[in-house]
């Protein structure tokens, strides 16, 4: 196993299920035999604030947070929050982002517009870019609520964790009655 640490960032808004997605990734990495550390701030997340989760895995992981400018892949649940986290990525890092806008208070109140052209701005800086309509694909899998699993599937392609470990992690972390839909959502994301 190489000394290389893989640094994954997940950014979005409280209530989007980022914690669960980062836990599935951590579990899969552990099952694949890696050391894993995960960190995020969840004090105010339930009140609609931004959330960034850091997952790091490799032979031996020290810092629980991704060193600034060393993220390998940014997994965005919401466009503006993805953009906000770009400084954490390394030059040439990859971005997989859900095509979703959640309006912050100042935009809801009509004080300023939601920024334009975010997709183009991200793509210009990080050409290794994938935009996904997680909700739409999740509907095809049978439940719009499985959007995170679709995204996780798309991210999984880029990570050196074999598919069997992802499946075992899903089995452990997802409630049994939602498992079939989530397996399907993961596959659709992986094929996207």
């Amino acid at each position: 196993m190489s000394e290389q640490i893989t640094n994954v960032l997940m950014a979005g808004v409280g209530g989007q299920g980022i914690l669960l997605a980062s836990e599935i990734l951590s579990e899969a990495a552990m099952l694949a035999g890696f050391d894993v550390k995960k960190s995020e701030i969840h004090g105010m997340s339930q009140r609609g604030g931004c959330v960034v989760s850091h997952v790091r895995y490799g032979r031996q992981v020290f810092s629980p947070i991704v060193p600034e400018g060393e993220g390998d892949i940014l997994f965005g649940f919401e466009l503006m929050e993805t953009c906000r986290s770009l400084p954490l990525l390394k030059p040439g890092g990859a971005v997989v982002v859900n095509d979703l806008r959640i309006l912050p208070p100042s935009v809801l109140m009509g004080q300023e517009p939601y920024p334009d052209g975010l997709v183009e701005r991200i793509k210009a800086r990080f050409p290794d870019f994938q935009l996904l309509d997680g909700q739409h694909v999740a509907e095809q899998a049978g439940n719009v609520r499985a959007a995170n699993t679709v995204l996780l599937g798309a991210v999984s392609k880029r990570l050196n964790i074999a598919e069997q470990f992802w499946m075992r992690a899903l089995e452990k972390m997802v409630p049994p009655k939602a498992l079939d839909v989530n397996r399907k959502a993961f596959q659709l994301g992986r094929e996207s």
């Binding site: 009140r47 947070i65 600034e68 060393e70 953009c83 400084p87 030059p91 208070p105 300023e112 920024p115």
Partner: peptide, 27 residues
């Protein structure tokens, strides 16, 4: 890690500059 690097005068990976975006305070 970045703050510790600065403290010891070590080079930083040059990240892309932070974008000016609307804030998202808790509500």
């Amino acid at each position: 890690p970045g703050r510790l690097r600065s403290a010891f005068g070590l080079p930083q990976t040059t990240p892309v500059p932070a974008e000016k975006l609307p804030g998202r305070p808790p509500n």
